[in-house]
């Protein structure tokens, strides 16, 4: 019985992680096509480093992800505060449209944004890409932050004002510190969403501003290149670090 359980456990883990293990293994495999293990090498990492197109795309992706995550979290925080603190006409409608945006297939959003950018005469490149990424990250940011805000005792805000805090002090001394875990979650979530987006990016960016997922996509059309494996390995490592970091922050939230 115990052996069976262990077998099941291993099966699930293999199912989930075997592809990643193979990818990481191939990143260090001397064999170019990964058909068999020919010995250990670090040369694909060097090849990756020396591939200017790939490195540029990676840099672009990180810049876009960083900017989109930061802006989406900032706008999302303000929107979430407005939704939960104030009663204004159109509040429900606005909140509803946020949900719609989250549910809508990426392809619809991608086409809609493309049509909009073309109509407004915005050149496809950095700015169009950034605006698009903020757009699809925003609802996730709002939902994450609003959930935390709704968990507050509403009297906390009354108490702060009662003790002499103006609206500005209230925001900086009470609301934002309390929101910190939600802001971090929102940022990490937005960063990940932005980093691995293919569909929206493929529509709204131009040839001058290539991003990593699109670059990899075009590179693997003619077979998986080992430098892509190397890059993917680095990204897996990076995600692992982010997950560990977010867990640490989560822990800190529970025992402040």
């Amino acid at each position: 019985m115990k052996g069976l359980r262990l077998l099941f456990f291993c099966g699930v883990f293999c199912y989930l992680y075997l592809p990643i293990v193979i990818l990481v293994g191939n990143a260090f495999n001397l064999n170019r096509y990964g058909l068999r293990w020919d010995g250990f090498t670090g040369k694909w990492f060097v090849a990756m480093w020396n591939n200017p197109g790939l490195m540029e795309a990676a840099r672009h992706s990180l810049v876009i992800a960083f900017a989109a995550a930061s802006l989406a979290t900032a706008i999302g925080a303000l929107a979430a505060i407005a939704f939960t603190r104030y009663r204004f006409p159109g509040r429900r409608l606005l909140q509803g449209t946020m949900m719609t945006l989250m549910m809508a297939p990426d392809i619809i959003l991608a086409i809609a944004l493309l049509v909009l950018f073309v109509a407004l005469g915005i050149a496809l490149g950095f700015w169009s890409l950034l605006l698009a990424h903020i757009t699809f990250c925003l609802p996730f940011a709002v939902v994450t932050i609003a959930a935390r805000l709704e968990g507050f005792d509403p009297h906390l805000l009354d108490a702060a004002r009662d003790l002499g805090a103006s609206e500005g002090r209230l925001l900086w001394r009470v609301v934002l510190p309390l929101l910190r875990p939600a802001l971090i979650s929102s940022w990490l979530l937005s960063f990940t969403l932005s980093l691995d987006d293919v569909i929206v990016s493929s529509f709204v960016t131009g040839p001058a501003y290539d991003v990593l997922p699109l670059k990899i996509f075009s590179m693997v059309k003619v077979g998986v290149k080992p430098e892509v494996n190397a890059l993917a390995t680095i990204m897996v490592g990076l995600s692992l670090i982010l997950v560990i970091l977010s867990q640490l922050f989560h822990k800190e939230k529970n025992t402040p």
């Binding site: 005792d153 009297h155 906390l156 009354d158 108490a159 009470v174 510190p177 309390l178 910190r180 402040p256």
Partner: peptide
Amino acid sequence: QSYALFPH
């Protein structure tokens, strides 16, 4: 009534 102490 809920005390409303700042948890952070």
